[in-house]
């Protein structure tokens, strides 16, 4: 964990990572002592049955939730130690989240949804707007749709906007939680191909899914069961 050479090769390293939830007097062991090393530039599928802890694990990696114990290092950042301004900055710069229900801001246009994270990061004006248009084109959203609000876009189009938003600050990791579950299979395949095209030297894509087809397209697969990683394939 302290070996810098190792850290260079891996974008995310977890040891004994744990997140439990109290639920009606009982404890749900959503993530229960997880170890993994995720190599840079891969597309990784996080697979497993409903309730096995995929979303919880992604949320921990994205600093949307805090682990109870264990180690988690992402791109050289000790995620457990994040709080306040450093946590905010981590969410802005290190990760881009793509959700199952798209989660765009309904009052903002497609373009504004993409410029939002740029503005939060301090990039204002024309520059961010030009870059956002470029990203929307990159994810395949026609120029005519850039000024529409999410309600006037199809599910697939909304998910494209969400992917462009995730790319806004050029983060080293994209986290996608069942990004195709609300889409028909053809649109879902296009979205997966899009995510696949995003991974590269500088970008890792982690997708939580129970879709076998998606998992088969991934460079490596982490299989989860009852809060634990039971199998890792493809390195």
């Amino acid at each position: 964990m302290n070996d810098p050479a190792m850290e260079n090769g891996f974008i995310a390293i977890a040891e004994g990572l744990t997140k439990h939830f109290p639920s009606g007097g009982r404890t749900v062991r959503a993530v229960d002592g997880v170890d993994f090393r995720i190599a840079r530039g891969r597309m990784v599928a996080l697979r497993g049955p409903s309730g096995c802890g995929k979303s919880t694990l992604l949320n921990l990696i994205g600093a949307l939730d805090k682990p109870d114990s264990g180690q988690l290092q992402v791109d050289g950042v000790d995620v457990r130690r994040l709080s306040g301004g450093r946590e905010v900055s981590y969410r802005r710069r290190k990760v881009g989240f793509v959700f199952q229900q798209f989660n765009l801001i309904p009052q903002l246009s497609a373009l504004e949804n993409v410029t939002l994270p740029m503005e939060l990061a301090g990039d204002n004006g024309r520059n961010s707007s030009d870059l956002a248009r470029q990203l929307l084109r990159q994810v395949g959203l026609d120029d005519g749709l850039h000024d529409r609000r999410p309600a006037r876009l199809s599910g697939g189009e909304q998910q494209r906007v969400a992917i462009a938003r995730a790319l806004a600050n050029d983060p080293p990791i994209i986290l996608a939680d069942e990004p195709t579950a609300n889409l028909d299979s053809k649109t879902g395949r296009l979205i997966i191909e899009l995510l696949q095209a995003l991974r590269g030297d500088q970008r890792t894509v982690i997708i939580a899914t129970h879709d076998v087809d998606i998992a088969s397209r991934a460079d490596s697969v982490l299989e989860m069961m009852d809060g634990q990683i039971v199998r890792a394939t493809g390195g």
């Binding site: 949307l64 905010v88 969410r91 802005r92 710069r93 989660n103 994270p117 939060l120 938003r165």
Partner: peptide
């Protein structure tokens, strides 16, 4: 939910 989204994409509490 919007508050959650804003925070997820990197909005500070103050924002």
């Amino acid at each position: 939910k919007e508050i959650g989204i804003l925070k997820a994409v990197g909005a500070s509490n103050w924002h």
